[in-house]
Write a protein that binds this DNA or RNA. Structure first.
Lengths: 156, 156
DNA sequence: AATGAAAGTATAGCTGT
DNA sequence: ACAGCTATACTTTCATT
């Protein structure tokens, strides 16, 4: 059980989703609480897993992996744990940022970073050879990021 | 000018992309530098925009927007600034997390969160009416997140 | 030029009321 | 929520490589 957020919690989450280094005092000033109250709430939400992680967002251009690809895949649905196996595999792949199991023309959509198309091709060849449950894939090359983030609206 | 990262910088980025609250002393111990050196490098990388943001990742289930949709769109390419206008518009839409301009069968791929399919439908109706340059769209409903993150590998 | 160590400053987080 | 306390994180300085 994780629910029971009040409006203060929601306002705090709205802020730290944009900047998790903001000081408790500044947050408190914005939402109308004391610094200690904000600290208590942040601690509680971290412990409850409501705040799952606090991460730095790095400019892709300086990482040596400036390209992004969005890959749709069809998965063999016959054996049920194909998904679980694939999940465990992608967890270990640093180049694979996000993976979604979806309805529609494809079963899985992944967001992949790579140095260039050659490296992407290699990564996908590895993926196919190490995951026979993936049957087919097609790729969209990202020409430009128009918006990037993990922000979810929390205001009621 | 933003380049010129050495192996220490790369190691630090590798860490803070997973946990940006880790203390400089702990980072230093891991990468083989003193706390002061780590703090100086972090400050520099923040100022240079190499670290673009530091954000909290919130559990979608507690936000009241538990559903995710991946939407492909076709855009009117005739007028060149259609993209720029759309970019400005999506920036103001909290429910739209990520937007990519891509090659392939669709021109744009967006990742959208919503409370339920009804709200998603409303959001997309608004999108179509306020952005006539978007001509057609098709939706994949996310059944399960297999991996979520913004992590980019930085190790040379 | 950048490091590491130490000193100094500031601030965060915790406690009790 | 506030005040007081403790701990510690960041900054600055400076000698060193």
């Amino acid at each position: 059980m994780v629910d029971g957020l009040d409006d203060f919690d929601r306002s705090i989450l709205d802020i730290v989703q944009r900047d998790c280094q903001m000081k408790a005092e500044a947050i408190g000033h914005t939402v109308g609480l004391s610094a200690s109250a904000v600290q208590r709430r942040l601690k509680r939400m971290r412990e409850q897993g409501i705040i799952k992680a606090e991460i730095a967002v790095v400019d892709r251009r300086v990482t040596g992996n400036p390209m992004t690809f969005i890959t749709g895949m069809e998965i063999e649905r016959d054996n049920y744990d194909a998904l679980a196996k694939f999940r465990a595999w992608v967890d270990r792949q640093d180049h694979i940022q996000q993976v979604y199991y979806v309805t529609g023309a494809v079963d899985i959509i992944a967001i992949v970073t790579a140095h260039d198309v050659g490296q992407y091709d290699e990564l996908m060849a590895q993926l196919m050879s190490q995951n026979p449950q993936i049957r087919r894939m097609h790729t969209n090359v990202v020409l430009k990021d128009l918006k990037l983030g993990m922000m979810v609206p929390v205001q009621s």
